[in-house]
Amino acid sequence: MKIFKTLGLLALCTSMLFITSCEKEDDNGEPNPTVQKGTFTLKLDHLFDGNAFALNQAYTNGSGESLEFTKVRYYLTNIKLEKMDGTVWAEPESYHLVDADDMTSTHIQLADIPEGEYHKISYMVGVDSTRNVSGAQQGALSPANDMFWSWNSGYIFFKLEGNSPQAPDGDFRYHVGGFAGANNAIALHNHSMHDQMLKINPNASPQVHIEVDIKKAFDGMHTISVAAMPKVHMPGMMAVHLSHNFHGAFVLDHVHD
């Protein structure tokens, strides 16, 4: 009797392993082993004024200032997908640190997603207020990643740094963050994928391409000039203006199967 039970359990566990992880099912409350899972890649293509972007290349912003970037890093977090029926899938522990200097960080792999067609993708550029006030974090949110203000607790949502002959000290440094009240610089992004739905199934590995045009950080709702404002290093109005501009930099380009 016992051996049958054990074997049965073993078979069950093995099949569960193949279909999905046991843990995830527990999270949803109702185990449903018949739901198939799939993956997709969120691919971030960095541009400057519509052309491929790279660090240490000369570009010109709308104010006619010459810019050479040495650092472009940002937090992309809280990724969610939505089906037409309103069902939402949210990536657990969804915190990603994207670095223009690190190709692997621009290809975010998402897994364990229930199969189906999704028409909306949303995410934050920034870190939700909860994680800004919850003490020592790990992984992408580890303070050792140098995206955390030690003296004025909170995450730096994005860093744009580089050199410019027009900047008073020859360089510009924008460290943008702030999660409270009028200084809130968290940017919520919503893209609809009606043109081509994101089709998740176990046999496909679709990609969602987001274009990030860095020039928009300078030329958007607000005009940012490195001569007039070379440094931002704390939450406040300047950081909020930069977050408005950077919000406009993210555009859904296409989805492919």
Partner: peptide, 28 residues
Amino acid sequence: MADGGINHIEVMPIAPLTDSLEMAESLS
């Protein structure tokens, strides 16, 4: 801190550890 800039006991030490006028070291 005297200005209340740090919001949690767990992240408090990062300031003196990394401040160039104090222990001046990086976490990594």
